[in-house]
Design a binder for these strands. Sequence first.
DNA 1: CCGTTTCTAGCACGGGTGTGCTAGCTTCGC
DNA 2: GCGAAGCTAGCACACCCGTGCTAGAAACGG
Lengths: 192, 192
Amino acid sequence: MDAEARRREIAEAVWRVVRRDGVPGASVRAVAREAGTSMGSLRHWFATQDDLLVFAMTLVQERARARVLAVVSAAGPDTTRGLRALEEVLPLDDERRAETEVWLALTARALVDPRLAALRDGSAEDLLALCALVLREPGALRPGLDPALEAERLYAVLDGLALHAATRPAALPADRAREVLAAHLGSLRDTR
Amino acid sequence: MDAEARRREIAEAVWRVVRRDGVPGASVRAVAREAGTSMGSLRHWFATQDDLLVFAMTLVQERARARVLAVVSAAGPDTTRGLRALEEVLPLDDERRAETEVWLALTARALVDPRLAALRDGSAEDLLALCALVLREPGALRPGLDPALEAERLYAVLDGLALHAATRPAALPADRAREVLAAHLGSLRDTR
DNA sequence: CCGTTTCTAGCACGGGTGTGCTAGCTTCGC
DNA sequence: GCGAAGCTAGCACACCCGTGCTAGAAACGG
């Protein structure tokens, strides 16, 4: 088996454990058990537990990034393209919900883990840039609005919705989150 | 010493530890050391570690709630009162930054801890209600806007800004967060 | 076929964990 | 003064933790 694929398999086991038992439950032993292998084998692929968590978070970000890029780089102009790109980081289905939960757990841990903090900062910059990019689409931003401030505000809406939809899905169902995001973009659009 | 005061003292020790070392660092021993007491004594006030965390989070919420209420219930009409009330839950100074960090850490843990989840849900409802209340002030919401949706959107902006200001203070300084929040409320206001 | 590399399994160590428990100290009410 | 209640200190237990290490299996190149 390809080495990278093996590492990805293990990282996915990390996600499952983190979703079930949180980051504290993601011990080396638990991950090995979840991945159906032994501690020794796992340690061959990841030297330390920290490497494991860092890789798991990297993978979450790469997957989200790939989905966003696929939407953004779709050919042809499309007024809903920005919305659809941003929706890729909302927990609208099970896959994205898992990603958001892992992201939240690791974001909290990043408060005391420098390596995770660096990862988090990188993805935050990416997302802020994405927001700015979406607002640069023709007609997306009504004249008179401050692009930098609106990017920051859109980013806040995006992460706020992701947070609420992930932590309290009953109070903010997927469709509702999408609706609020669409309304936000609509309120910025040039309506002439 | 008053019993409740003693419990509060210990809870504040929990905050200090959580801020320094994260929730994983908040072991019974570490908290006892931080509070300048012994494990046995600490266990007299809190039977289990879970009780400790639950009480610490309850206290965070109560403090924020008290601050918000103080602003909201201030006498006389005031167009900036809503803004100032919402600002009370943003990490704009050290005290509120500490609260936000603890809130974030415990929100993440609430994904796998039912008692903390219940607390989180309660405070989320409070905050959503606060957003709705702020938007009900005369002139706060331009005719034609959907109050429920706007409350949800405002709540997302609020938590998104809190999250970003707490995790990446360099990228989103306190003043900037306040500015974005003010701009959001401004964009909803009746400008006639 | 054999040597080498890659990978797996599992043990052992030192240390930290939450919690149960008891013995002693302090602080009251009377 | 004295008993009782409230409080503190600290030990002990069983458990889980990350990691270092070694022995062996498997895969592969020649």
